Computed example of a mutant assay.
Amino acid sequence: MEEIEKYIILKVKKIRESKGVNQENLSMAIGKNISFISQIEAPSKKSKYNIIHLNLIAKVLKCSPKDFWPDEPL
């Protein structure tokens, strides 16, 4: 997994937790199975977000998709 992918996964997790949203509720809110977010946040991290996922997550968390990206290239 690329460094940028790890960064975005951790950033989504940080924002999700700061908003008090658990993995299951976020998964369901974006129309995915109950374990979708937990599979991405798992230590093995074989799954990844795509642009559509990030946009849907931003809507649920009431933030901008830009909030998930670093200010500078990694």
Rank of each mutant, 00 (worst) to 15 (best):
G20S: 03
S64H: 00
K19M: 07
Y7S: 12
M1G: 15
W69L: 11
N55S: 12
I51M: 07
K11L: 04
A58P: 00
E72R: 10
M28I: 09
N50R: 03
I34V: 10
V60A: 09
F68M: 04
S27F: 03
R16F: 10
S27R: 04
K48C: 12
I4A: 12
P43L: 15
K62T: 13
I57F: 06
S47Q: 14
I9A: 15
Q23H: 00
E2C: 07
I8F: 04
K46G: 13
P43Q: 15
Q39A: 15
E24C: 03
P73L: 14
K14R: 07
I8M: 09
N33M: 09
I57H: 03
Q39C: 15
L54Q: 01
E5K: 07
S47I: 02
S18T: 04
N55W: 13
H53N: 12
R16S: 09
I34L: 05
Q23A: 04
N33S: 15
P70I: 07
K32I: 02
S64T: 01
A29D: 06
D67M: 08
L74S: 08
E72P: 00
I40W: 10
Y7M: 12
E3M: 13
K59C: 09
I37D: 03
I15N: 03
H53I: 02
E2S: 13
I40D: 14
S27L: 01
S44A: 15
A58N: 05
W69T: 07
S38K: 10
C63T: 13
K32N: 12
K66D: 15
V60Y: 09
S44F: 12
K6M: 09
D71C: 09
E5P: 00
H53A: 05
K66L: 13
N25G: 08
I37N: 08
P43H: 15
V12E: 04
K62L: 14
D71H: 12
V21S: 03
V60T: 10
L61T: 02
K6I: 09
I52C: 02
I57K: 01
S35Y: 14
W69Q: 09
S18C: 01
K46N: 13
L74E: 08
K19L: 07
K32V: 02
K66N: 14
K11D: 06
S47F: 11
Y49N: 01
A42Y: 14
E17D: 02
G20D: 07
K45V: 05
H53T: 00
E24Y: 07
K66G: 11
C63Q: 06
I8Q: 11
V60F: 11
S38T: 09
L74A: 08
Q39V: 10
I34P: 00
H53P: 00
N50G: 03
K11W: 03
R16M: 08
Y7E: 13
K66H: 11
E24P: 01
K19G: 04
E24F: 00
N33R: 10
I40E: 12
A42W: 11
M28C: 02
K66A: 14
K14C: 02
F68N: 03
E2R: 14
L56Q: 05
Y7G: 10
